[in-house]
């Protein structure tokens, strides 16, 4: 079957099996392999992408469900020599080790910062009306993104640093 996606600003048509996940369509059909498959069950977050601006586990959704949707993957944020402030912050803070969960961490953080800016509360918010971007909030909101190398403190340092850069 055919599905048309707008990926990183480009309209792409994908011919795929009805069972194909958005993740496999991105990786194997469109060859955008920056998005990783860590568990294929929505448990690790390595496949996080933005769909119409909202973060989502690409392994838990079928490509066929996204006809006409706007998808942003890690390749859409920046590339070596032209990294986004958040990507650059991951490099300078060593917010990774093996790098396999990194695309997901950065995409999740990108979506998460939008949610924070919008004032969406979380389990960690002491006051539902006044959401701050402190470490407890970021840790709570990033907990769907596992990192077995356990770069967590440096990932969150990078997110804090990168968020400042994205705003300025």
């Amino acid at each position: 079957m055919q599905t048309t996606l707008t990926v990183n600003g480009h309209t792409r048509s994908v011919d795929h099996d009805p069972r194909t996940t958005l993740l496999d369509a991105l990786r194997d059909s469109l060859r955008l392999t920056g998005t990783k498959k860590g568990c294929d069950h929505g448990q690790c977050g390595a496949c996080t992408v933005l769909v119409n601006g909202r973060r989502i586990n690409a392994c838990l959704t079928l490509a066929a469900m996204h006809d006409g949707d706007e998808i942003t993957t890690i390749e859409g944020l920046g590339e070596p020599g032209a990294l986004s402030p958040l990507q650059q912050a991951f490099v300078s803070c060593d917010g990774y080790q093996c790098g396999f969960c990194t695309s997901g961490q950065i995409m999740s953080a990108t979506g998460m910062l939008e949610e924070l800016a919008r004032g969406d509360p979380s389990h960690a918010s002491p006051d539902l009306a006044q959401v701050s971007a402190d470490d407890a909030e970021i840790a709570e909101r990033m907990s769907g993104n596992l990192c077995r190398c356990a770069a967590y403190p440096f990932i969150r340092e990078a997110i804090s640093l990168g968020a400042k850069g994205e705003r300025s």
């Binding site: 392999t33 920056g34 998005t35 498959k37 890690i74 990507q87 060593d94 790098g99």
Partner: peptide
């Protein structure tokens, strides 16, 4: 020193095994 492979890792361009097809 920052990792020289860092820019590839944060932009999804570092190639892991399953990325090959």
């Amino acid at each position: 020193m920052d990792r020289p492979d860092g820019p590839l890792k944060v932009s999804g361009q570092a190639t892991y095994t399953a990325d090959a097809l």
